[in-house]
């Protein structure tokens, strides 16, 4: 799937201080099977851009296109169903659910999630639940190996995992759906170096094997360099630099204003 942002603008009105233009015409295109990183200082609107793509912010101007189709009318959950997967900044596993339940929540199969279902289709629910369990086990096997400790922790509450492990499972969980576009908001923040390498391997595998389109917000420049083909530098509500990652990160302007080199 191809993701395009056309002239995205977002303004916050304030009667005292006047209007604040957070995004002032962002244009970006990410092709299928491509990893693009968005870099920029804090408060430049990177996460806001993800919120616009995911449908959490709807009062923007411009267009968000998926394979050429404007997705403005779609609410958040329909955008997710259309193939946009999102990893949020910070921990996003549901701590009161087990690991397996967290994985199942990300499945596109919603059989049984209507209150009438347990009373009229319990047999069918059991079959679907079994299929989801098998899929979750397959994903964990594939990503972390058959000797992974997570296989024996599937019935434990997600809150039992460390922050870094929750990030890993958070990414694994996205594979339960049928996401074609992944929006990853600082996947390595607060994660130790061993897990950072695992996260990079998982993302690389997803792009190579499933041709996913990945848009990445990240402050870890080594991670960006090792993974992203293209890079966009966001500043003052606009994309000031866009191109191959090495080229953008070596740009004098980016070095001075963002990297502080």
């Amino acid at each position: 799937m191809k993701l395009e942002l056309q002239d995205i603008r977002l303004t916050f009105s304030n009667s005292r201080k006047g209007d604040f233009h957070l995004l002032q015409g962002v244009n970006l295109a990410v092709s299928e099977g491509e990893i693009t990183a968005i870099v920029g200082g804090n408060g430049t609107g990177k996460t806001t851009l993800f919120n616009i793509i995911s449908g959490f912010i709807t009062d923007y101007q411009g267009k968000v296109l998926i394979d050429g189709k404007d997705i403005r009318p779609l609410p958040t959950y329909k955008r997710a169903q259309a193939g946009i997967g999102r990893l949020f900044q910070g921990t996003q596993l549901m701590g009161n659910l087990t690991l397996m339940e967290n994985m199942k929540m990300a499945s596109v199969d919603t059989m049984g999630e209507h209150p009438i279902s347990p009373f009229i289709a319990w047999k069918s629910i059991r079959t679907h639940e079994y299929q989801k369990e098998q899929r979750a086990i397959d994903i964990i096997n594939k990503l972390f190996g058959s000797d992974s400790k997570y296989l024996s922790m599937l019935d434990q509450k997600a809150s039992a995992l460390s922050y870094g492990e929750q990030r890993l499972i958070g990414i694994a969980r996205l594979l339960m759906g049928e996401s074609k576009i992944l929006l990853l908001d600082e996947p390595t923040s607060g994660v130790n170096p061993v897990y950072i390498k695992t996260i990079a391997d998982i993302i690389r595998k997803l792009v190579e094997e499933q041709h996913m389109t990945v848009l990445l917000i990240e402050h870890n420049m080594n991670f960006v360099k090792s993974l992203a083909t293209n890079c966009a530098y966001l500043d003052n509500g606009k994309i000031m630099q866009y191109g191959q990652t090495e080229q953008v990160l070596n740009d004098e302007g980016v070095k001075n204003s963002y990297l502080g080199v």
């Binding site: 959950y77 329909k78 549901m94 659910l97 199942k104 929540m105 049984g112 999630e113 629910i125």
Partner: peptide, 24 residues
């Protein structure tokens, strides 16, 4: 015990994430 109960418990934990996982 049903998937609907699981959905409600997930909403309790993090409604934003549940929306982003494609649930109404």
């Amino acid at each position: 015990k049903s998937p609907y109960g699981r959905l409600l418990r997930a909403i309790r934990a993090d409604e934003t994430a549940v929306k982003a996982l494609g649930r109404n």
